[in-house]
Amino acid sequence: MTFKLIINGKTLKGETTTEAVDAATAEKVFKQYANDNGLDGEWTYDDATKTFTITE
């Protein structure tokens, strides 16, 4: 399955995708991506669209 991450950061904005077997796996990938890029914010997830959002 394809999951999307929408980034609404103070300095970084955009989106990225990952292929994962489930939402929990995708969340780990996206949280590592956010950590690697210095993002810290509030996370939301929409199961209907398989989309995570981080807002700083």
Rank of each mutant, 00 (worst) to 15 (best):
T44C: 07
F30G: 00
N35Y: 15
I7S: 03
G9Y: 10
K4T: 14
D46S: 06
L12H: 13
K31N: 04
N35T: 14
G38L: 08
I6N: 05
Q32M: 10
L5F: 08
E19L: 13
L5K: 00
K10M: 11
G38Q: 10
M1K: 13
N8K: 12
E42L: 13
T51I: 07
G38A: 10
F52N: 00
A20V: 05
A26D: 00
K4A: 05
L5M: 05
A48T: 11
A20T: 05
F30T: 00
K13G: 07
G9C: 11
K4E: 03
L5R: 00
T16I: 15
Y33T: 03
K10D: 08
Y33L: 06
Q32A: 12
F30V: 01
V21W: 12
T49R: 07
F3Y: 11
K31I: 07
I6E: 04
E19C: 11
L5D: 00
T51H: 03
E15A: 10
W43H: 01
A48L: 13
A48W: 09
T49D: 06
A34R: 02
E27M: 09
T55A: 07
G41E: 01
K31E: 04
D40M: 13
G14R: 06
A23P: 09
M1Y: 15
I6V: 09
D40K: 14
D22I: 03
A20R: 03
T49Q: 07
L12T: 14
N37D: 03
I7A: 04
Y33C: 04
K28W: 08
D46K: 03
V29W: 14
Y33F: 13
E27Y: 15
K13R: 12
E27W: 14
T17N: 06
M1I: 15
D46W: 04
E56Q: 09
G14N: 06
T16M: 15
E15S: 13
A20N: 03
E19H: 09
T2C: 08
E56V: 15
L39R: 02
K4Q: 06
A23R: 15
A26G: 02
T17L: 12
K4G: 04
T51Q: 04
L39Q: 03
N8S: 12
V21L: 13
V29S: 06
K4N: 06
T49P: 02
D47I: 09
N35G: 07
A26S: 02
G9L: 15
E19W: 14
N8P: 03
T17G: 04
T25D: 15
A24P: 07
E56G: 06
G41W: 09
E27T: 04
E15M: 13
A34F: 03
G14H: 11
N35D: 11
E15K: 05
T44S: 12
A26H: 00
D22E: 04
V21P: 14
T53E: 06
A26W: 01
A34V: 12
T53A: 05
D46N: 11
L5G: 01
A23T: 07
K28C: 07
T2S: 06
A26P: 00
Y33K: 03
A34Q: 03
T17M: 10
A48Y: 11
L12V: 13
Y33E: 02
D47L: 07
A34T: 07
F30K: 00
D36P: 01
N35P: 01
T53C: 06
K13S: 10
T18F: 10
W43G: 00
I54G: 00
F30L: 04
E56D: 08
T55P: 01
D36A: 15
D46Y: 04
G41I: 02
D40T: 15
T55K: 05
F30Y: 02
D22T: 05
E19V: 15
V21H: 15
T17D: 05
V21M: 14
N8A: 09
T44G: 10
T44W: 06
T17F: 15
D46L: 04
K4H: 13
E19K: 10
E15W: 11
V21D: 11
Q32H: 08
T2K: 11
W43V: 03
T25M: 11
I54C: 05
K10W: 08
L39D: 01
K50S: 06
D40V: 13
D46T: 05
D47S: 14
A48N: 14
D22R: 03
T55N: 11
K4S: 07
F3I: 02
I54A: 02
K13E: 05
A48E: 12
E27S: 07
M1R: 08
V29I: 15
L12D: 07
W43P: 01
E19T: 13
L39Y: 10
T16H: 14
A48F: 12
A34C: 08
T17R: 07
D40P: 04
I6S: 04
T25N: 09
I6T: 05
D46V: 05
K28M: 14
I54L: 14
A20G: 04
K13F: 10
W43Q: 01
F3M: 02
K28D: 06
E19G: 05
A24Q: 12
D36C: 07
K13V: 11
G14Y: 14
M1T: 15
T44V: 09
A24R: 11
A23W: 09
T11V: 10
A24Y: 11
V29H: 15
D47G: 11
T49M: 07
L39P: 02
E19D: 10
K4V: 10
T53K: 05
G38T: 04
K10Y: 07
T18H: 07
K4L: 08
G14V: 14
E27Q: 10
N8Y: 14
Y45M: 02
T2P: 05
K28N: 09
F3W: 06
T49H: 08
W43K: 00
A20C: 07
T16N: 05
E15I: 10
E56C: 07
M1G: 13
E15T: 13
T44E: 08
L12N: 10
G9S: 12
F30S: 00
T25R: 06
T51K: 03
D47H: 10
I7Y: 13
D40A: 13
T25C: 07
T16C: 10
G38Y: 07
